[in-house]
Every structure is written in structure tokens, then in C-alpha cells.
């Protein structure tokens, strides 16, 4: 199956220790210093929106946001442009970008206390209701491919998957792993899969 418009949301570890709008400056610095390997365009402040995209970093290939959907804060990477390769290769690319952004945010001198994101708790989303309606049929097709990817990216780690239950929402699966690699380790591992 040709999945496109894949997204990943890495969960925040604990609470944010500062107001969410502090990410605005950091995302502008991402643009100024070419911190990520994709072209970044602009920063958008949605902090006034209830449980919304929070602070949005608009890119050409993908958007990133400090997303607050359902009151759960996380770093969301949403690919917009088509990706080539197998499902595993596509997922590796998306997750790697999320990991690179998370690592950069965790290491920022400007965000205090430093935010921490979970490399072992994330949700994979397919942002396309045409190819991936939120149905049991989609789950049955997508899940084996996701499991195969996780087995390769997180070798030897146990994995629990939980699908998004509301059929009106985008199809997605929450991934919970038994071990938490550092983002350095994860980025290295994913580089071999892309």
C-alpha cells in the first residue's frame, strides 16, 4: 500500500516548564540557523487556540508543531510532500526529522527548564482519508508495516500499538515501547533505514 502524508507526534515527558509561546523564538532560530534538513518557511502562533497546533513551524516538505491536541503536548511532524521508498523508509524519514527537532529543542540554551520528549511514546498518523480512512481495514493493512518498521528501528524492543478509536479522526496508531533510546541513538539507527 502506498501511504503518504505520514506524521509522527512525539509525546512530551512530563509538563512544559515554561509558556508555550517560548517556542516561537526557538523556531525562528531554527530558521535562522538552518537547524533542520528541510526548508523552513515561517512560524505561526496558535497559542490562543484551545488544544490546537500551539506553535507551528511551517516548512515546505513538512510542518512541525508543539501540538496540544486532546490536551496532550507533543512535537508533531506532518509530512506534506510525497515520500519515496518503502513504508519503512518513509516512516524512518519522518521519525528521524521528529527526533532531530526534539534533540535540538532539548538542547536549546533558550528553553529553560529544557523540555524532554519521549523517543518511546509516539503516534503515527496518516493524514489522508482517501487512502487511509480510519477503519479496521486500514488498521489491518498498516499495522504489520508499522510493526516491521519498529522492529528494525528499535531492535529487540517490545512494542504495543493502539489505534485511534474515533472513526471521524485521521487514522493513527499510538506506539508504546519497552525501552527509550536517546535521540542520538534513534537518529543513528534511523539513518540506516531511510
Amino acid at each position: 500500500m502506498e501511504w503518504q502524508k505520514l506524521g509522527v507526534k512525539l509525546e512530551l515527558d512530563g509538563e512544559l516548564g515554561f509558556p508555550i509561546h517560548e517556542f516561537i523564538g526557538e523556531f525562528h532560530r531554527f530558521i535562522q540557523t538552518d537547524r533542520l534538513p528541510i526548508m523552513l518557511i515561517d512560524v505561526h502562533d496558535y497559542s490562543h487556540v484551545h488544544q490546537g497546533p500551539g506553535i507551528l513551524l511551517v516548512g515546505d516538505e513538512a510542518n512541525l508543531s508543539i501540538d496540544q491536541t486532546d490536551g496532550r503536548v507533543g512535537l508533531h511532524v506532518a509530512y506534506k510532500r510525497p515520500l519515496g521508498g518503502t513504508t519503512g523508509q518513509k516512516l524512518a524519514r519522518v521519525l528521524r526529522l521528529a527526533a532531530q527537532a526534539a534533540r535540538a529543542l532539548e538542547r536549546s540554551r533558550h528553553l529553560k527548564p529544557a523540555p524532554a520528549f519521549r523517543s518511546d511514546r509516539f503516534t503515527v498518523v496518516v493524514n489522508d482519508r482517501l487512502s487511509a480512512p480510519n477503519t479496521e481495514e486500514t488498521r489491518a493493512t498498516f499495522e504489520p508495516e508499522l510493526r516491521a518498521f519498529v522492529a528494525e528501528a528499535y531492535a529487540g524492543v517490545e512494542c504495543a500499538l493502539e489505534p485511534e478509536s474515533d472513526p471521524r479522526r485521521l487514522f493513527g496508531m499510538r506506539v508504546a515501547l519497552s525501552q527509550r533510546p536517546t535521540f542520538d541513538e534513534l537518529i543513528k539507527s534511523l539513518a540506516t533505514l531511510q
Binding site: 484551545h50 488544544q51 490546537g52 479522526r169
Partner: peptide
């Protein structure tokens, strides 16, 4: 606020 609504809302 500012006329912005999320998909969930």
C-alpha cells in the same frame, strides 16, 4: 479567539 477553530472543535 481570533476566529480560529481546530478540526476537533
Amino acid at each position: 479567539p481570533l476566529g480560529d477553530l481546530t478540526a476537533t472543535q
